[in-house]
Amino acid sequence: MQKIVPCLWFDGNGEEVINFYTGIFPNSRVTDRLHWPANGPGPKDGSLLTATFELFGQEFMILNGGPDYKFTPALSLYVPCETQAEVDHYWDKLLEGGGKPVKCGWLTDRYGVSWQVAPQAMTRMFQDKDPEKAGRAMRAMMEMTKLDLATVQKAYEGR
C-alpha cells in the first residue's frame, strides 16, 4: 500500500477523468469507487464521490468535491519518457479534447491538470559535467513547447 496518495479534486466529472487517464496509460486500473450515500450530505443521486485508480502502478484518488477549487501549475504530474515516440504519444493524448500546450514540455489537460512530459535522456544532458554542453541543451529546451529530443541532442553536441 502506497503511504501517500495524491488526491485530485474535480467538479462532478471524476468518472470521466478516470476513463480519460486510464485510457492513456497502459497497465492502469480502477481499484475502488465510493458513491454519495442516499441519506448523507451531498447529491442524493448516488453519483461518484471518490475513486482510486492506478497509472503505471502509481495510486491516485479523485474526489468529486464541487466547484470550490481549481488546479494550478504549482503542482504537476511528471511523465518521464524513454523515447521521442513515448513523448509524442503522451503529449498528444493528454492534449486531446481541449488541453493546452504550455512551454518546456508542460501542458494542461482538458481538466486543468498540469503535466510535464519529458525524455529522460534530456535530463541526463542537463546533468553533464561539461557546463557548455549542458547549457546548450538547456537553452534549446527552453525554446520548445513539446520537447524534441533530437533537436536538444544536436544542441548538446554543438551541431
Rank of each mutant, 00 (worst) to 15 (best):
M1R: 11
Q2W: 08
V5Q: 05
P6Q: 04
C7P: 00
L8Y: 06
W9L: 06
F10N: 02
D11W: 01
D11K: 09
G12N: 01
G12Y: 05
E15H: 12
E16A: 14
E16T: 15
F20L: 06
F25M: 08
N27A: 09
R29Q: 15
D32C: 04
D32E: 10
R33C: 06
R33N: 03
R33T: 13
W36S: 03
P37T: 11
A38F: 08
N39T: 08
G40A: 07
P41S: 09
K44N: 14
D45L: 10
D45P: 15
L49R: 12
T50I: 09
T50Y: 11
A51T: 03
A51S: 12
A51R: 04
F53E: 09
E54K: 11
M61Q: 13
L63Q: 08
L63A: 09
G65S: 05
G66C: 10
P67H: 14
D68F: 15
D68N: 11
Y69S: 12
K70L: 13
T72Q: 12
P73C: 07
S76A: 14
Y78F: 15
V79A: 09
P80D: 10
C81M: 05
E82F: 02
T83M: 01
Q84H: 01
E86M: 05
D88A: 05
H89G: 00
H89I: 00
H89K: 13
W91I: 06
D92T: 08
L94F: 02
E96L: 10
E96Q: 09
G97Y: 02
G98M: 00
G99W: 01
K100I: 08
K100N: 12
P101C: 00
K103G: 01
K103A: 08
C104G: 01
C104I: 03
W106V: 07
T108K: 04
G112L: 01
G112V: 07
V113K: 03
V113F: 00
V117D: 02
A118I: 14
A118V: 11
A118F: 13
P119L: 04
P119H: 06
Q120N: 09
Q120G: 08
A121Y: 05
A121F: 06
M122V: 15
M122A: 08
R124L: 14
Q127C: 07
Q127I: 11
D128S: 15
D128T: 07
D128Q: 14
K129I: 07
K129E: 15
P131S: 10
E132T: 11
K133Q: 10
K133H: 04
G135S: 13
R136A: 07
A137D: 05
M141G: 04
E143M: 09
T145W: 02
L147Y: 03
L147I: 13
D148W: 04
A150C: 00
T151H: 14
T151P: 00
V152C: 09
K154P: 00
K154N: 12
A155I: 10
E157Y: 03
R159I: 11
